[in-house]
């Protein structure tokens, strides 16, 4: 019934301006736009077709802060009323005293007794304004100051693949390597374990980042982890948070 002509295949990589479909039978979604008769790509990405809707999954690009996301940040400034955090984007986040602790803090108290410059914090975004001013909180499960371990950065577009469906991928890595892992939506990842275990975990995550757009990823990650750790990994590991 559709009176449109599709010009690309599912999972095809397209470049900005490329024509994806012609006619009014298709609908433009994320990463695409309509120009007269045709639907064109708005960015570099992977085509995903869902019935009549065409959308693009981006392969590159920076993190856009969104309320509800858990991110890893670093304290780079301390103000009268809280801490300013580097979010690995163009915009700093603000952590107010009230969102950081339930302690009573005297006016003019030394805030470095809570968090010093350079400390890493796992925080949750509570609000983002139109000018991308970010408000964050430390109150919530799993939100805290990070001590020990190591931090590294990956492409934020690959974070969903690193976490996997309901956290399946990261749980598998945690179980296989005995590392504690926290993945921030902004692409910063914290890992703690023995040096050997940390290395396996980092290499695995970098492999996922490199190969995220190819199919059969879970099986390859499983094979890699089994080879590196010598453990047998069951197929549906219990999801742990």
């Amino acid at each position: 019934m559709s009176d449109g002509e599709l010009l690309v295949k599912e999972k095809e990589i397209v470049v900005p301006g490329e024509e994806l479909a012609r006619g009014l039978g298709f609908l433009p979604s994320k990463g695409t736009y309509r120009n007269g008769e045709s639907i064109r790509a708005n960015r570099l990405g992977l085509v995903e077709i869902d019935g009549k809707v065409i959308k693009l999954v981006s392969l590159s690009g920076c993190y856009l802060p969104k309320a509800g996301d858990v991110i890893i940040t670093q304290v780079f400034d301390i103000t009268f009323s809280g801490w300013r955090l580097d979010t690995a984007t163009a915009y700093p986040a603000m952590l107010g005293m009230k969102d950081a602790t339930s302690d009573y803090i005297n006016r003019g108290a030394d805030l470095t007794s809570y968090f010093k410059l350079g400390d890493y914090l796992v925080v949750k975004i509570i609000n983002v304004t139109s000018q991308n001013l970010i408000d964050v909180t430390l109150k919530g499960p799993g939100l805290r100051k990070l001590q020990g371990g190591r931090i590294f950065k990956v492409n934020p577009n690959k974070v969903p693949r690193i976490i996997g469906k309901q956290g399946s991928m990261v749980s598998m890595i945690k179980l296989a390597t005995n590392c504690k892992i926290i993945v921030g939506q902004n692409g910063l990842i914290w890992i703690e374990g023995t040096p050997q275990e940390e290395k396996v975990a980092v290499d695995t995550i970098l492999m996922i980042e490199r190969e995220a757009h190819k199919s059969g990823l879970t099986d390859r990650v499983k094979a890699y982890l089994e080879k590196e750790t010598g453990k047998v990994i069951e197929n549906n590991p219990p999801v742990q948070r």
Binding site: P16, N35, R40, N42, L44, S60, N157
Partner: peptide, 9 residues
């Protein structure tokens, strides 16, 4: 385009 910015063309 490689950097992933929104570009119409």
């Amino acid at each position: 385009a490689d950097a992933g910015f929104e570009m119409k063309d």
